[in-house]
Design a protein around this nucleic acid. Structure first.
Lengths: 194, 194
DNA sequence: CTTGCAACATACCAACCAGTATGTATATCT
DNA sequence: AGATATACATACTGGTTGGTATGTTGCAAG
């Protein structure tokens, strides 16, 4: 019973990655699945609500799963971030680079257009930042990170560089830009160590 | 004679900033100007060609004007970048932050959808990077920048952080994220000095 | 002066698109 | 068994959208 709903959600998530929210034609997306409009509007009152559900049920858990660990685990925070960068870099196949970061994509497209999207996306970003900054604060307390480091600012810098690299890489076929940026980011992270 | 064409271009540039290329309705945009479809399709064969013209005639010159100086002038490159960051940060009023960087916006939206956009946007990015990297190389030669610095990688890192900060800031009302990121970026830039 | 072309304006159109109205099969509750 | 709700399918609609076809006006060259 939940199967069709999940199918609709995931297919539209992929369509949103490629075409943006405005570019998605939900009926065409589900038609490719053999599902009809009856099912679509049975589960989702409107296209916008479908978009919100994609953010809440697919995008949000994915990002919190990746970045949340920094806050909960007790490892060296710089090690954690450096590991995370390698994780992000490695599975970045051509398609991932070409389609970019789903969170970033939606922020750019929908933030100025719709408060519902903006608030949901901002909440994800804040949670990512909170986890990263908490890790850095813990590092300062444990003398793993220089006491001069401003954890909040450093966390925004790291997130900006990562998302920026993903974003700019979309214009090129290869992942060279991202690899270069991440190498420099590793150097920067090293300067934060105590 | 060029007046109406310029008017159409600029109005659509602003519309593209807010709604993205796909979200723009060119006839509505020009209707607000008192111009009709006859003029629009007289100057531009299609919506897509209008979009290309916005990139080539408005966005490209704006960015090359800002970043090109680093290559042509002979000042200390790190000083130049730090000055540029302050310039970018200061006029970043609420609206600039809410609407984000036009180049970044278009990259995110159109790169996976249209080669014409992708190539034009990639060319702008490459030119920005070329100028910045050239400045850093000059700095290495002049012993203003550490010889261990990889100019190409550092240039991508700087551009990624700047564009990333612009992008992420769109979800929030204020410019705090951008200010924080730029402060950290200034620190990073300082570590590049010889 | 008339021919021709640039610079628009107006009217129209076919495809599209989000959403609705209605129908139906099946399962569940009473 | 009958009533009700869930889970869809089908057909339709009204507004929108990008684009075209067909004027009209003014000006400049021959």
């Amino acid at each position: 019973m939940q199967d069709t709903r999940t199918l609709i959600l995931q297919a539209n998530y992929h369509a949103m990655r490629r075409h943006g929210f405005q570019g998605v034609r939900p009926d065409k997306v589900i038609a490719a699945l053999g599902v009809t409009k009856g099912a679509l509007y049975h589960y989702f009152p409107s296209k916008k609500d479908l978009g919100y559900a994609v953010v809440e049920e697919i995008i949000s858990p994915a990002y919190l799963g990746i970045w949340g660990d920094i806050q909960t685990k007790n490892d060296h925070p710089i090690d954690q971030v450096q590991t995370l960068l390698n994780v992000l870099l490695h599975p970045a196949k051509t398609d991932d680079i070409a389609l970019g970061c789903p969170l970033n994509n939606l922020i750019q497209e929908m933030s100025p257009l719709d408060e519902g999207f903006r608030n949901r996306l901002a909440a994800i970003l804040k949670a990512m930042h909170r986890s990263l900054a908490a890790g850095l604060k813990r590092g300062v307390a444990n003398q793993q990170v220089k006491p001069s480091v401003n954890p909040d600012a450093a966390a925004w810098m790291i997130l900006s560089a990562v998302e920026g690299a993903f974003g700019l890489s979309k214009t090129f076929q290869d992942g060279q830009l991202m690899a270069d940026t991440f190498i420099q980011l590793q150097d920067y992270l090293h300067t934060l160590r105590a």
